[in-house]
Simulated scan of single mutants.
Amino acid sequence: MGLLVVVANVEKIPCLNTLLVTMSHIHYSPTIEIVFVLEGELEVSFLTTSNMFISKLIKKGEIFLFPKGLVHFHKNIWRMPAAVITTFNSKNLGTQSIVSTLFVAMPTIPIDLLSKEFQIDTNEVEKIKLKLKPKN
């Protein structure tokens, strides 16, 4: 998962026995986003550079790290609310909608290519493009 936790506790350092102290040092691999679930459950997914789809259900108290630069998402798939805390390795983070970007790119991506890649009819591609077209 790209995470290494080194713990200093009473088992490793016996003189900490009466101090009620534990310390940890956490090493993160270069990641773009870390999600910690406060409430509920989320489906977290990303696509590797070899086009493998990775998906997992994470619950309250669990953490998930998204590798840097990979297409990813997280969504609430249940009917109950969910809440997360996220951290990023960027001082000025932005988001990008993949579908919007592909369907309204300039110059435009050919409809037959979008149809083939999304495995939808060319008429459906046209409908999506019209729906996503920026309003002037």
Rank of each mutant, 00 (worst) to 15 (best):
Y28D: 03
Y28C: 05
Y28M: 05
Y28K: 03
S29R: 10
S29G: 11
P30H: 00
T31V: 13
T31Y: 11
E33K: 04
E33D: 01
I34G: 04
I34N: 07
V37M: 08
V37F: 08
L38E: 15
L38F: 12
E39K: 10
E39H: 05
E39T: 08
E39Y: 03
G40K: 03
L42Q: 03
E43Q: 11
E43L: 10
V44L: 03
S45P: 05
F46G: 01
F46E: 00
L47N: 02
L47E: 08
T48M: 04
T48C: 07
N51M: 12
M52S: 15
F53H: 10
F53Y: 11
F53E: 08
K56D: 11
K56T: 13
L57D: 09
K59W: 12
K59V: 13
E62D: 09
E62Y: 07
L65M: 14
F66E: 04
F66C: 02
K68P: 07
K68M: 14
G69Q: 12
G69C: 12
L70E: 01
L70F: 00
L70I: 07
V71A: 05
H72G: 03
H72F: 04
H72T: 03
F73T: 11
F73Q: 11
H74F: 14
H74S: 07
K75I: 08
K75T: 08
N76T: 06
N76R: 07
N76E: 09
I77M: 09
W78R: 13
R79A: 11
R79C: 13
M80V: 13
M80P: 07
A82D: 00
A82Y: 01
A83L: 11
T86S: 14
T86E: 15
T87H: 04
T87W: 03
N89W: 01
N92V: 12
N92K: 15
N92W: 10
Q96S: 13
S97C: 08
S97P: 04
I98S: 06
V99N: 05
V99T: 10
V99F: 04
S100Y: 12
T101N: 11
T101K: 10
L102M: 13
F103Y: 05
V104Q: 12
A105F: 06
M106V: 14
M106L: 14
M106D: 15
M106G: 09
P107R: 05
P107T: 02
T108G: 15
T108V: 14
T108E: 15
I109R: 02
P110S: 14
I111P: 00
I111N: 07
D112H: 15
D112P: 12
L113P: 00
L114A: 01
L114E: 07
S115F: 05
E117P: 01
F118G: 01
Q119A: 09
Q119Y: 00
Q119G: 04
I120S: 05
D121G: 01
D121K: 06
T122W: 04
T122E: 14
N123W: 13
N123Q: 14
N123E: 15
E124Q: 14
V125R: 00
V125D: 03
V125I: 05
